[in-house]
């Protein structure tokens, strides 16, 4: 995935997260909702049940969304890490440190010959 794609994904996820959190907070109030309903004439037990049921479902849905958003974020971090690890390029300078002393090497090889045969 490209950097831009990742950024867009990040924006999308944070958006969802904040939205669902806000919704959750909005829905979590108890007293206010009750007050409103008390003054309305339509506060039959059925309608109360209906609102509370839908509120319940909303809370559930938003919770699930919140969790999914976090999980998505984690998947994203993993993707980024993999990207980092897999696209590393060996450093040229690192390799040049192993400069051979050719003369010494050939001397050692000669010595080997003498030692083994001698």
């Amino acid at each position: 995935m490209s950097d831009r794609g990742l950024l867009e994904q990040l924006n999308r996820i944070t958006d969802t997260l904040s939205r669902s959190l806000a919704n959750l907070v909005k829905n979590s109030s108890i007293s206010k909702e009750g007050d409103e309903d008390e003054h309305g004439n339509y506060n039959t037990p059925e309608s109360a049940a209906r609102t509370s049921t839908s509120g319940l479902m909303l809370v559930n849905a938003q919770t699930a969304q919140l969790i999914r958003g976090i999980q998505d974020l984690m998947v994203m971090t993993r993707t980024i890490r993999e990207k980092w690890l897999l696209t590393q390029i060996p450093d040229e300078n690192d390799e040049s440190q192993l400069e051979l002393d050719y003369k010494k090497c050939s001397q050692l090889l000669e010595q080997w010959e003498k030692e083994v045969l001698g």
Binding site: E38, T53, G55, I67
Partner: peptide, 30 residues
């Protein structure tokens, strides 16, 4: 009316509690 409100609030509280538990568990796992 009182009863209706109580039931409504009870449900709400329960669902909030459930949501809290769910989030807590997920948080632990995550």
């Amino acid at each position: 009316i009182m009863e209706g409100n109580l039931v409504t609030k009870g449900w709400k509280l329960r669902s909030l509690e459930e949501s809290r538990l769910l989030m807590k568990e997920t948080h632990k796992a995550l």
